[in-house]
């Protein structure tokens, strides 16, 4: 089985903090990591490979330094890695991203299953998986939480819904986006790290993809950022002061108002 896993390099969210004085993101020392949901997608791909045989190809679109997450993925069990990178891709929204990723996947030597995380933690849009499947014209399932069975022809799985889950099946080739509940990602192995170190990473540029320049990057993006600003706080900061007993008394009165 040929499995493709799409991954993204993102800033580590737990390190991102807003500097209260300047109202900008304090990004000093913020590490770049593999999007956590993508790590679960990768694990799902590697588990399927171990169970049913085949190969796992990881693919990322990003600047040259995104190569790091590809090596990380190979250390965790992926076989091949492709970096989709070109200045022309910069500023892409999800529409232009899915266009570019689809072009890259179509350039591969066939595929049976495409795996994505449910969303990236920097954008939180959850749009790339469904959009990519549509462009590849393959069926897809979002929020996959458990793979029950996978043959060369069909995959059966559980999809999370807002109030439970659906058991569904679809024919391959197909695309899945996965949630955290699907598995526990492994720690990179020694042999994997050694392989990752030596691995030759293939880079696809806009020219390699024979892509329409009008569909790439900022120019190909239907959405534009009109303004960026710090969230506003309502901040009337009315504070209850006094001894603990006085504070509790006032708090209690306030609550009583609300409760009655």
């Amino acid at each position: 089985m040929k499995i493709v896993v799409c991954i993204k390099q993102v800033p580590d969210a737990k390190d991102v903090r807003l500097d209260p004085k300047t109202n900008t993101l304090a990004r000093e020392g913020v590490a770049s990591i593999m999007n956590p949901y993508d790590r679960h997608a990768l694990e799902a791909g590697v588990c399927l490979k171990e169970q049913y045989g085949g190969t796992v190809t990881v693919l990322t679109m990003g600047p040259p330094q995104a190569e790091e997450v590809l090596r990380d993925a190979v250390a965790c069990g992926a076989d091949e890695a492709i970096l989709v990178s070109d200045r022309a891709f910069a500023g892409a929204d999800t529409w232009a991203t899915t266009y570019t990723l689809a072009k890259a996947i179509e350039k591969l030597d066939g595929y049976d299953l495409v795996l994505c995380g449910k969303q990236a933690i920097d954008g939180d849009t959850a749009q790339v998986g469904p959009g990519l499947a549509q462009r590849l014209n393959i069926p897809y399932i979002t929020y996959a939480r458990k793979i029950n069975e996978c043959t060369r022809e069909v995959i059966r799985l559980e999809r999370m819904t807002d109030d439970g889950y659906d058991e569904v099946e679809m024919d391959l080739p197909a695309l899945l986006t996965v949630v955290k509940e699907i598995n526990e990602p492994r720690i990179p192995s020694l042999k994997g790290k050694m392989k990752a170190k030596k691995l030759q990473i293939t880079t696809y540029t806009a020219a390699d993809l024979k892509a329409d320049p009008n569909c790439l990057g900022l120019k190909g993006s239907p959405t534009q950022v009109a303004r960026v600003f710090s969230p506003e706080m309502r901040g009337d900061r009315s504070m209850i002061t006094g001894t603990v007993a006085e504070q509790v008394e006032q708090l209690f009165e306030k609550l009583e108002d609300c409760l009655s």
């Binding site: 929204d93 529409w95 849009t125 959850a126 998986g129 499947a133 549509q134 819904t161 239907p222």
Partner: peptide
């Protein structure tokens, strides 16, 4: 919702529309 976030991106892709999430 789980449904909206699943199929709306697909519609946006087919009709070449911009889509803003959440």
């Amino acid at each position: 919702t789980a449904i909206g976030r699943s199929f709306i991106p697909r519609v946006a892709t087919t009709v070449d529309a911009g889509l803003t999430a959440d």
